[in-house]
Design a binder for these strands. Structure first.
Lengths: 170, 170
DNA sequence: AACAAGTAGCTTAGGGCTAAGCTACTTACG
DNA sequence: CGTAAGTAGCTTAGCCCTAAGCTACTTGTT
């Protein structure tokens, strides 16, 4: 109905916004244009990641634990507290993830020599090998999705998301 | 270290990418620039929505059920099957949400007159009143977050997200 | 030295989801 | 028509999370 042609085909979020316009034309739906898509993207890409990591025998949450240890660099050691803070997880949830990963032989819990309340969590050699392969599979999947946009528009999108994240996460 | 100054301050995702660059410089982290932020935005904004809807006595998931019925227009009726398909939920999960909302008096389940296997889910007057108020609170919260970007950059962001979503959700 | 306050990790109870399986009903086909 | 296949919604078992509470240990104060 617009005078100029739409440059983009409609997506499911457009359909939802149009529905709202019919029943509540007073509503300011500009936010849905962004956050509706952010939610759906997070879900869709999360599902894809889950499938990418499945052949390695780990879930996305477990991947995140191993990746955080790997990113820390040698000797690939962090405390459960540091991990749960980084991953925005309660200590209870962290205990569960560590239990599973330790049982799988991908990491090891040992007493912290400087604080007898604490533990150190360390990647095993097998854990290191696995995360080094899995992370490549993960970023490859992301690159595949981004290919549709092209490098310039991807970089522009990243910049806009950074600004929005800085404004939101505070 | 770059020749030109960075136009944006660093965010938590920049820190993660920098950490990867130190320990795995071979890794193509372009995807994280986008999807790392998408994940964090979804989580941060999801938490904020949860707090916005709490005073109405509903969770975000329950909001979504009521909103889907509201968007459908009069007589605000859909089947559990239609709802679970729209909300990307299993029928088991849907049963639970409907139980809670029905107990709260916000919707009503009645037999489908044309298909004795099926049900019709209908917003009660109280449910209609509540969702009409809650949806305003929700979009207001979204607009507040988007204000940091301004209208042009918000629209640009929405367009880029639409393209990426269309490429990803297939 | 003694003690209050704070912190680390674990346990438990409970919520919400999925996957799988159930019954009841409808639809398609020979 | 009668039967096989499909579909609607519910139930159950199991997973993973949070919130709250626990014990053990450390830190700060006097």
């Amino acid at each position: 109905m617009s005078a100029r042609p739409e440059p983009n085909p409609a997506d499911p979020v457009d359909a939802i916004i149009e529905q709202w316009a019919r029943v509540r034309p007073d509503l300011d739906t500009a936010g849905m244009e962004v956050f509706g898509r952010v939610y759906r993207l997070a879900r869709a890409m999360g599902d894809r990641h889950e499938r990418v990591y499945a052949p390695f025998g780990i879930s996305r949450g477990e991947f995140d634990v191993l990746a955080t240890l790997r990113r820390a660099g040698e000797p690939y050691t962090l405390s459960p507290r540091q991990l749960s803070a980084t991953l925005m997880l309660t200590t209870g949830g962290m205990t569960g993830r560590l239990d599973k990963l330790e049982r799988a032989g991908l990491l090891r819990r040992s007493p912290d020599p400087h604080d007898r309340r604490g533990l150190q969590v360390t990647l095993t050699e097998e854990g290191l090998r696995l995360i080094d392969e899995a992370v490549v599979a993960g970023v490859t999947e992301q690159s595949r999705a981004l290919a549709a946009l092209g490098p310039e528009r991807s970089a522009l999108l990243a910049d806009l998301l950074r600004d929005l994240l800085l404004a939101t996460e505070r």
